[in-house]
């Protein structure tokens, strides 16, 4: 039943559309609008249900190019996940630790992790880029960025 990718995605979309539709039916009623806030979401939910069914049963066969696109080696996916985790950590910590330090750490480790071996250049860029951005944003543009543990 879930033999093709289209079927699997179709099923997933069907579930998402159902949840969305369920939530649309929960929207409170507002007395003064002929077309209330729930009308369009309900329409969208139904449309998405129909489209997901259409995708499920569509006979379109994936082209070779499409298949190639989703052929991702496991290892690469892990690399990607690791980068996302790094970004997540960055967001989690940068208001506390501060923009300059956190950005420097991120650029250095992310670049190194992705295979950048000239560590001298890496260090220089990791320090100069956040410093430069900080100076431009905070002093030239007046947009404050978190300073965190640094005094400035």
């Amino acid at each position: 039943m879930l033999s093709t990718m289209n079927r699997r995605i179709g099923l997933l979309l069907f579930i998402i559309a159902s949840v969305y539709l369920y939530l649309s039916f929960q929207l409170p009623n507002y007395p003064y609008a002929p077309v209330d806030a729930d009308v369009i979401p309900k329409g969208l939910g139904i449309l998405m249900l129909i489209l997901s069914v259409a995708l499920f049963f569509s006979r379109a066969i994936e082209t070779e190019a499409e298949k190639a696109k989703r052929n991702i080696p496991k290892k690469e996916l892990l690399v990607l996940l690791a980068v996302f985790a790094m970004i997540f950590l960055y967001i989690l910590l940068f208001e506390m630790v501060g923009f300059i330090v956190m950005t420097a750490v991120f650029i250095f480790f992310c670049s190194w992790f992705l295979g950048y071996e000239k560590w001298k250049t890496n260090i220089i860029v990791s320090i100069l880029f956040p410093l430069g951005m900080y100076i431009i944003f905070v002093f030239a543009l007046g947009i404050s960025l978190p300073n965190g543990i640094l005094p400035i």
Binding site: V83, I87, Y90, I91, L92, F94, E95, T103, F106, I107, C110, S111, W112, F113, L114, G115, Y116, K118, T121, N122, V125, F129, M133, F137, I143, S144, L145
Partner: peptide, 25 residues
């Protein structure tokens, strides 16, 4: 710019860009 470095910088640019509108993580 070498790819790994460019990737890190683009990520950084995107994050700063969004943060500078809302200041909201």
């Amino acid at each position: 710019i070498p790819r790994p470095l460019l990737i890190s910088l683009v990520i950084m640019f995107s994050l700063i860009g969004v943060y500078s509108i809302s200041f909201n993580t």
